[in-house]
C-alpha cells in the first residue's frame, strides 16, 4: 500500500544509504536531469536503491521500469505516478 510521495531529497538519501556516493559528485546539487551513470551509479546500485524505494513507499517497481528511468527526474516521475495510483 502506498504511503507517501518520493522527493528528490528522499531519493538522494536512499541512494546514499544503499549505494554510497561517488567522490567528485555532489548529490545535493542540480542533479534532476543528470543521468545516473554520470552520478556514478550502475544498474546494480539502482536496483538496490529501487528496493529501498519499494519498501519505503509500498509500491512495486519492475526491473524493466527501473532500467528505463535514466535520470532522477524520470525515476521520481515514475515512482510518484505509482504512489498516486496506489493511494
Amino acid at each position: 500500500m502506498a504511503t507517501h510521495e518520493l522527493t528528490l531529497a528522499g531519493l538522494t538519501r536512499i541512494l546514499r544509504e544503499s549505494a554510497g556516493e561517488d567522490e567528485g559528485v555532489d548529490l545535493d546539487g542540480d542533479i534532476l536531469d543528470l543521468s545516473f551513470t554520470e552520478l556514478g551509479y550502475d544498474s546494480l546500485a539502482l536496483l538496490e536503491a529501487a528496493g529501498r524505494v519499494e519498501r519505503e513507499t509500498g509500491i512495486k517497481l519492475s526491473d524493466d521500469v527501473v532500467g528505463e528511468a535514466e535520470t532522477p527526474r524520470l525515476f521520481l516521475a515514475l515512482v510518484n505516478e505509482l504512489v498516486t495510483v496506489g493511494t
Partner: peptide, 8 residues
C-alpha cells in the same frame, strides 16, 4: 574505501 564501495 569510498562510500560507493562500502555497501557492496
Amino acid at each position: 574505501l569510498s562510500s560507493r564501495l562500502l555497501p557492496q
